[in-house]
Design a protein around this nucleic acid. Structure first.
Length: 486
RNA sequence: GGCCCCAUAGACUAAUGGUUAGGUCAUCAGCCUUUCACGCUGACAGUAGCGGUUCGAAUCCGCUUGGGGUCACCA
């Protein structure tokens, strides 16, 4: 039988990185087994509708390079893939459950339920009390039918059998057992006619012929309810695999507060999708070799759901940055220039050729983790420096600096070769001819051209800046220095 | 609190009964050097604890401790 998996997020407005990892593992599993990947939207909570949430979700998945075979916008044999468009299906299956006696109507108000829970405050676990509340059993079948027909608000609850044990196998965790005494008579159909997650999820997974349910660990406690539902319907259940959680540094479930958590935020912060995918893939699993960087095809090739770890994994942003840097180092300059251009434009820097941007990128790519850092640390590549580091100036600008500089400036003016190697030779032989060391002149030059103590190689920087610009900056600096303004 | 899940260095992980417990991030040091980085080399640092099974345990079992998740007409 061919593998069919699904990623079934609820449209909360954005894709959480934890969701991305779940989506990714499903994707890797599907592709590894040459199976089918389904995207299904679980929007059965109409109180939490968020505008454009589905579009955003799909956009983020697409950004990450995770494409699905069936789902919203694509269709498929089991459409629709948005649960709010499948209401009549759930109603139909809810009725089947009711007819089988596996579920029953209940008429309690929210207040009555609250009160029931308050009744035994010392109790460790408050289960819906089928024998004392307002439902089909206490009211009688006839009365209850009358109420339903007359339009009284009601829900459908799962009749959980007493004192039996639900057992299922988890691909990652092995055998899991839970006593039904610990399982509540879960609401399956809400009073607004929408199904709860539990019903919709089971019905859809069955109807869509899902073979493996791969989802976050937070679903583990409700899986027994789902197993009960499969059993009640007389359906074969899929295989389950509950993924370990992604954690904050304090080990709690990954959330905002301690940094971005939305995939779109990582994108706008300048992370590369390949880096995020690579990083997230290795949180909870790895191909067991001594390597960190993998292409998506390599991940697909070696993915093994049974080798996924059981314990939660802290989302370490420092390592993510390092990962991003690994990709930045290797990325073609023209692609990075395409990223740089709008960043510069946003700062009002325009009019530079792509070729020039590529040179700047190559100068700085090993000194940054994000492209957006370039205008921050190397603004002088786009206009003359306005500020000069005071401490750097005081340390390297001596009384005789101008004296030493002027003949060198003439040599720069005279040379036809402004390549970094030629500049190096020229500068070196000149300064050594004076019995001085190269570094004695390099720092003043760096100061005049960049205003900063830190930067790329001096002669490489000069080559990219170009002869005219370098000469202009040096002359300007000397002039201003003479006025005493610096 | 009940139930469920989990436990290799600060973090991510490898090792599925036999290794000096390996790799990566972070941290620290040295080298390189033209500043800052990169890179290279090295260092620090781990099987939560206690029992048991076994010739042999990070690995299997039990208990303890610790952490997390979950207990809605939310998913």
């Amino acid at each position: 039988m061919s593998v069919r998996v699904r990623f079934a997020p609820s449209p909360t407005g954005f894709l959480h990185v934890g969701g991305l990892r779940t989506a990714l593992y499903n994707y890797l599993f599907a592709r590894h087994h040459k199976g089918t990947y389904v995207l299904r939207i679980e929007d059965t909570d109409r109180t939490r509708l968020v505008e454009n949430a589905v579009e955003n979700l799909i956009k983020s998945l697409k950004w990450a390079g995770i494409d699905y075979d069936e789902g919203p916008g694509k269709g498929g044999d089991y459409a629709p893939y948005i649960q709010s468009e499948r209401l009549s299906i759930y109603k139909e299956y809810a009725d089947i459950l009711h007819k089988k006696g596996a579920a029953y109507y209940a008429f309690d108000t929210t207040e009555e339920i609250d009160e029931m829970r308050k009744r035994n405050p010392g109790e460790s676990f408050t289960k819906y009390d089928r024998t004392s509340m307002k439902n089909e059993y206490t009211l009688g079948e006839e009365e209850s039918k009358k109420m339903v027909d007359s339009g009284t608000s009601y829900v459908l609850r799962l009749k959980v059998p007493d004192s039996t044990t639900v057992v299922f196998d988890d691909l990652i965790r092995g055998k899991v057992e839970v006593s039904t005494n610990e399982i509540d008579d879960q609401v399956l159909m809400k009073s607004d006619g929408f199904p709860t997650y539990h019903l919709a999820n089971v019905v859809d997974d069955h109807l869509m012929k899902i073979t493996h349910v791969i989802r976050g660990e937070e679903w583990l406690p409700s899986t027994p309810k789902h197993v009960l539902l499969y059993h009640a319907f007389g359906w074969e259940k899929p295989l389950f695999a509950h993924l370990p959680l992604l954690l904050n540094p304090d080990k709690s479930k990954l959330s905002k507060r301690q940094g971005s958590v939305a995939v779109e935020d990582f994108a706008s912060e300048g992370y590369f999708s390949d880096a995020i995918v690579n990083f997230v893939a290795l949180l909870g699993w790895n191909p067991s070799s001594d390597r960190e960087i993998y292409t998506i095809d390599e991940l697909i090739e070696s993915f093994d759901i049974e080798k996924v770890n059981k314990g939660g994994a802290v989302f370490d942003r420092a390592k993510l940055e390092w990962m991003n840097f690994q990709y930045l180092k290797l990325m073609p300059a023209n692609e990075l220039a395409d990223i740089l251009t709008p960043i510069l434009e946003a700062k009002g820097i325009t009019g530079f050729q792509t070729e020039y941007l590529e040179k700047v990128i190559n100068l700085f790519r090993e000194r940054i983790k994000f492209v957006k850092e370039i205008p921050e640390i190397a603004g002088y590549m786009f206009s003359s420096p306005q500020d000069f580091e005071q401490e750097y100036l005081e340390k390297h600008w001596k009384g005789n600096t101008v004296e030493i500089l002027e003949p060198l400036l003439d040599k720069y003016k005279a040379t036809g070769d402004f390549s970094h190697s030629a500049l190096y030779e020229l500068t070196k032989s000149y300064i050594e001819g004076l019995g001085k060391k190269l570094k004695e002149i390099i720092h003043p030059i760096r100061l005049m051209l960049t205003g900063k103590s830190a930067g790329a190689g001096m002669f490489e920087t000069m080559e990219v800046l170009g002869k005219d610009e370098c000469i202009k900056r040096i002359e300007e600096f000397i002039k201003i220095k003479e006025t005493g303004k610096i």
